Structure formats: structure tokens, C-alpha cells
Amino acid sequence: MAPTPPPRAPGTWLLLAALLALVVASFASLPLQWAAFFAPEALDSAAEFLGGFSPPETSPAFLARTAGALWETLAMSLVGTLLAALAGLALALPAAGRLGRSLRALVRVLLNVLRSIPELVWAALLLVAAGLGPFAGTLALAAHTSGVLGRLFADALENVEPLPESSLRANGAAPLAAFLYATLPQALPQMLSYTLYRWENNIRAAAVLGVVGAGGLGQMLKYHLSLFQMPSAATVVLAMLLLVAAVDAASYALRRSLTR
């Protein structure tokens, strides 16, 4: 006879009831106009709007400009993610409590601030200082992603097995050497996986940041949409889709190779 599972604690049922009440209250408080959304007039307008995107612009000159903007978007995401990984690792050490409890709390607050501010807000702030172009977008991606990766890296360092580092230090190894040879190798595959995942997200974010003037495909998309040049906008959207799909595939392959 299979053993009977233990009864759930009352707190679990209360939490589930609270989540259910939150879902119901969310639907009740939002003006969701499903009837208007699926009305024949709305569907006809949407079909007419989408029809304007066909056929996409395929002139060689425009495709060359799109390829340049695609590379700019890819470069923004790569550099922004690399800067964020370096900054995140530097902030993860004190955030994981390796430099004292008081500094841990202070750095955790800094990481919360960095990741709580969206990339678009960072870009709007940095555009004032750095001007229009991809530099401000790269810094915006790095600022937000530093907060995300710093928190993830700190959690990874806190969750590793402490015995190897303790053994090395008990045998006379320096603290830095014990960390580099015992703790960091345990957390490094997870850190690399987090970094690759954030690179995937930053590709999408870099495309959106162009809307506020940070360069790349997003800036081209905003320009052509504002002039109602739908075939040109369709080409830019297709370039975005191809870039995201390629980066997703490359990141997935790299993460698979790291976990084998």
C-alpha cells in the first residue's frame, strides 16, 4: 500500500486562496473589452493594417542599411551583456556575503535599484548624457543587466558546496586561491548559463531601445512606422525575427554544451 501524503499546512491553503483571489480581482478591475476586440470592424481594421506590410521592401540599398542596423543591434547586446557580466561578477562577491554582512546588504540594495529600473528608462537617462546612438543603448543594457546578473551570480555563489573551499583554506591556501579553485568552478557553468540567457533577452531589449533613439533596428522601425512606410517596416521586423531566432539557437547550443 502506498503511503498517504502528509496533509498540507493551513498556510499553504491560505496562500493558494490569496493567489486565486488576486487573479479574480485582477480580471475584475481591468476594463477588458473582449467584445470590441473581436468585433468585425476591429478585425477588418487589423487585417487592413497588416496588409500594408506586404510585400516587404527588398531593394539592395535598403537591405544593406537593414543589415548594418542588425549588426548594430547585435553589437549593442553583446557589449552590453559582456559589461554587465563583468560588473555583475564584481558586485556578486560582496552581495554573496564574502566581504562582510553590512556590505552584503548595501550591495543587494544597489542590485535591486539597477534591475528595478527598466532598460527604456536607463536609455532615456543616458541619452541625455551620452547623446543619441548605440552608446547610450549599450550602457542602458549594461546597467539593467548588471543588477539582474549580480543577483543571480550572488545566489549561485551562496548555493555552492562550501566544503571544498573550507578544505583548501584549512590546508593553508590563501582565501583568493581557495575561491578561484574551489568555489568559482562550481558556480561558473550556472553563471555562464545565466549570462547567455540574458544575452537572449538583451537582443530583444536592444531592438526596443532603438525606439527612443538608441540606434539599431528599433530606430529604423520607428522611423519607417512614423512615415507609414509599411513595406520598409516589414523588412525591419523580419530582420528582428531572424536575429532573435539566430541568437536563441546559438545560445541554446552553447548552454547545452556547458551542461554536458
Results as ranks from 00 to 15, higher is better:
246 A>R: 09
183 T>M: 06
80 G>D: 00
47 A>Q: 08
34 W>P: 07
61 A>T: 12
251 S>L: 06
232 S>L: 00
236 V>L: 01
134 P>Q: 10
24 V>E: 12
92 A>L: 00
101 R>W: 08
160 V>Y: 11
2 A>K: 11
140 A>T: 11
79 V>P: 13
30 L>Y: 08
66 T>Q: 04
3 P>Q: 12
27 F>E: 11
1 M>V: 11
20 L>I: 05
32 L>P: 03
229 Q>A: 11
144 H>R: 12
103 L>R: 12
57 E>Q: 14
100 G>E: 02
244 V>I: 14
75 A>Y: 01
181 Y>C: 05
132 L>Q: 15
237 V>Y: 00
212 V>G: 00
256 R>M: 07
216 G>N: 13
151 R>T: 12
168 L>S: 12
172 G>H: 05
152 L>R: 10
203 I>G: 01
178 A>V: 01
5 P>W: 09
15 L>G: 07
250 A>C: 14
218 G>I: 01
62 F>V: 05
176 L>S: 09
2 A>I: 11
43 L>E: 13
153 F>I: 02
251 S>F: 04
49 F>T: 15
232 S>N: 09
209 L>R: 03
132 L>C: 01
37 F>N: 00
167 S>N: 13
218 G>K: 01
247 V>Y: 01
56 P>D: 06
241 L>D: 06
56 P>E: 08
229 Q>S: 13
212 V>M: 08
94 P>E: 14
78 L>W: 10
7 P>R: 05
259 T>Q: 07
91 L>E: 03
73 T>H: 05
224 H>M: 07
248 D>P: 05
222 K>F: 15
94 P>N: 13
